[in-house]
Design a protein around this nucleic acid. Structure first.
Lengths: 342, 342
DNA sequence: GCCAAAATTGTAAGCGCTTACACTCTTCTT
DNA sequence: AAGAAGAGTGTAAGCGCTTACAATTTTGGC
C-alpha cells in the first residue's frame, strides 16, 4: 500500500507552475496576485483536493480556523440553542467550534483567563455566552488579540447581541398590569446564578419600572430570589405561598422558573390563571406545552447573529471596527396562564 | 513594551541544561529519561510557565490535544447532557472539545466523511453520539487512524456505551403489563429520526418481546410512528385517538414523545392515568414536573463514560485494545401517569 | 578492570505554512 | 525614451515541536 502522501501547498505550487509563496497568497486572497495566477492556483488546488493544514498555518502565524464558544453550561435550553446556532454559522464559514463549558465552576474560568495566550494559540476568536466577567477579565480578553463577540452581555468593548432585558421584563409586567392586576410578585434571577448578573438585575429593573409607570411600588416581600431552574422557581413560589397571601399575578424572570411556579401552585391545589396569573420570559418549547404566557426571545438568532459578527470581524480583520451592541426583539405570547383580573 | 516572547521548549531546555530532545521526551513521559532529567525538566517548565504549542506539536506529528464530538444536534436534551459531560472529561484531561453538530443535515456528515484526513489533522479522536453511520462510513472511520468511541451505537469496531434499549423498552412495557394492562399501543421512534435506527428498532423489539412474554400479540394499528419530539408524540397520539378506540396504556419510546401524547390527551379532554396510562424512556427533567412515569437512563454518565474510554485509549495508544460495549443501567421511575388497570 | 550491551542524551532534519525581502516585469511620468 | 513607481513573483528563513539516528555514558558479566 502506498503511503498516502498528504497534499501540501508544495504540490499545488508544482502543479500550477508557481512558487509556494504565490500559491499561499492566492489561496488566502491576498493582494498582489494576478488573476491568471489566482485561477491557476484555484485549479490546481481543486484538482489535487488540497486542504491547508491548520496546524502548519497556525504555527507559521496564520489563523487556526477555529473559534471557541464559552458558556456557563451547555445543557440549559438557552445555551444549547445558542451554541448550536453559532456552531452552524462557524461551520458554514469553515471554522471549527471549540466548546468550552464553565460547568458553573469558577476554576475553569480561572484556568482560561490564566492562560489567554494559550487560548489564542488554539483559536482565532471567542464567542461568550452570558459569561460573567470581572473588569480585569474583560480587559485581559480585549487585549489578548483574540476577536471577541458575545451574547447577553453589556458594556463590553466588543460586539454584543442580546435582548433588551429591562424592556422585556417591562413588557411582561405591563401585560399583567394591563390585565388589571396590581398585586404583583416577581421571581427574580439570582445574582450568583449562571446567567449574568446584568440580565437578572435588568429584568428586575424592568419589573420595577412597569410598576412605577402604573404608580405602583415594589413591595420587598414580593421580590423573591429564584434560580433559573424549575426547582428554583418552585422553591421561590413555595416561599411566596408560605409567607403571605397570594398576589394576583407573578412575573417569573424566565420560563423555567415559571414552570416551577406552576408546579408549586399545583402542589397547593392552586392553578394559573385561576388563582394567579403567571408570565415568564423565553418561550421555552415546554411553555407552549404548558400554555405558559411568556415574552419570547429569539435565542438561536442571538447565537447566530453574534457568530456572524465574529466571523465578519475575523474575515475583515484589518477593517476598522467599532464595537456594536444589538438588541433583538422580544414578543409577547399570550397563552393560558394569564387572564384579566376581575 | 517588551515583546512577549513565547516560552518555547528551547527555553526549558536551556534552563534545565538539557537538550530540546530530552525535554520533549521528559514532558511527554516517554521512556529512556533518567529521573534526574525528568525532575529538572519539570522544574524548569514549571518555573517558566511553559505550555507546549499544540500547533507545533501537531505539525511535527504529535497530538492535537483535541477531540471532536459529533452529534445529530446539540439542542436536544439528551445530546446537550451527553456533550456537556463528555466535554468536562475531555477538559479535565487537557483536551479541547471540538463540537460538530450534524444539524440533521446529511450534508455535514458527507463533508466530514469526505475529508477524514482533514478531520484527523485537527483532532486526535472522535466521540460519536447516536450517529447513524453506513457500513462504509464505519469502515472509513475505523481506518482513519483516529481514536473513536461512541454512545448509543452498536456493532461498531470501537468502544461504545449505551443502555440496553431493548431491555429498557421491555421493562417499561412490562411495567404496564404488570399493572394489568393488556391493550397497549406504542409510539415508536422513526427510523429517519435523529436517533439512530438501532435505538428505535431495539425499543420496538423490547415492546414486542414484553407482549409476547405475556402471550399477547402486537397489533399493527397500535404501533404508531412518532418523532422524538413533543410535537411528534402529539401527532402520533392524535392519530391513535382518531383512528380507533383508545388502548388502556401507551408506551412512548422517549419522554418527549410522551409529553406530546399527554398533550394530545388533554386536548381531547382526556388525561393520564385516568383514561390511559402513559410511560416513556429517559427521565427528562420535565418528566418529574409532569409526573410522567418513565424508565430513567443515565445520560450524563453515558457521555462521561464514553469520553473516559476515549481518553484512556488516547493516553495508552500503544496498549493493545479490544473494542468493548458497555450497557449502563436503566431504572423504572413510577410516577403519576401509570396506574393499575381495573 | 575490560568490553559489549543497554540506557541515556544530543544532533539535526523536517512537519506545511507564512512572511520579510529581493527580484523581475510592467506601466506611467516628464 | 529613460527612469521611477508599482505590480507580480520568488527566495529563504523561520514558527515550536517530534523523531530517526548518532553520540555518549552507564551497567554488568567475566
Amino acid at each position: 500500500m502506498v503511503k498516502a502522501h498528504r497534499v501540501t501547498i508544495q504540490d499545488v505550487a508544482i502543479l500550477s507552475g508557481l512558487s509556494i509563496c504565490t500559491v499561499s497568497r492566492a489561496l488566502r486572497n491576498l493582494p498582489n496576485v494576478s488573476e491568471k495566477a489566482q485561477a491557476k492556483v484555484a485549479d490546481a488546488a481543486a484538482k489535487l483536493g488540497y486542504k491547508p493544514s491548520s496546524a502548519a498555518a497556525r504555527l507559521a502565524g496564520g489563523s487556526t480556523r477555529s473559534i471557541a464558544i464559552i458558556a456557563p453550561t451547555a445543557t440549559a435550553w438557552f445555551f444549547a440553542q445558542a451554541v448550536e446556532a453559532a456552531e452552524e454559522v462557524f461551520g458554514d464559514s469553515g471554522f471549527d467550534t471549540v466548546l468550552i463549558s464553565l460547568h458553573g465552576k469558577s476554576s475553569v474560568k480561572r484556568k482560561i483567563f490564566g492562560d489567554l495566550p494559550g487560548l489564542s494559540q488554539r483559536v482565532d476568536g471567542v464567542l461568550l455566552l452570558n459569561v460573567d466577567l470581572s473588569e480585569s477579565e474583560v480587559a485581559l480578553l480585549a487585549a489578548s488579540g483574540l476577536a471577541v463577540a458575545s451574547v447577553g452581555m453589556t458594556s463590553v468593548p466588543w460586539d454584543n447581541v442580546g435582548i433588551d432585558d429591562e424592556l422585556a421584563a417591562w413588557r411582561a409586567t405591563s401585560h399583567l398590569l394591563g390585565l388589571g392586576h396590581w398585586d404583583l410578585a416577581v421571581l427574580s434571577g439570582r445574582e450568583t446564578q449562571e446567567n449574568s448578573v446584568l440580565t437578572a438585575s435588568d429584568r428586575l429593573k424592568g419589573f420595577s419600572r412597569a410598576l412605577k409607570d402604573h404608580h405602583l411600588t415594589v413591595h420587598p416581600d414580593l421580590v423573591i430570589n429564584s434560580d433559573s431552574t424549575i426547582d428554583g422557581g418552585r422553591k421561590a413560589m413555595n416561599e411566596l405561598i408560605a409567607h403571605r397571601s397570594l398576589p394576583t399575578a407573578v412575573f417569573a424572570h424566565c420560563d423555567e422558573a415559571a414552570f416551577g411556579a406552576l408546579m408549586a401552585l399545583r402542589e397547593h391545589g392552586l392553578s394559573a390563571p385561576k388563582n394567579v396569573s403567571v408570565i415568564g420570559i423565553d418561550d421555552h418549547p415546554m411553555s407552549w406545552f404548558l400554555g405558559l404566557s411568556t415574552l419570547a426571545q429569539p435565542v438561536a438568532d442571538q447565537g447566530a447573529f453574534a457568530a456572524n459578527l465574529l466571523v465578519d470581524r475575523l474575515q475583515n480583520a484589518d477593517a476598522p471596527h467599532e464595537p456594536s451592541n444589538h438588541f433583538l426583539d422580544t414578543k409577547l405570547i399570550e397563552r393560558k396562564t394569564t387572564r384579566r383580573q376581575r
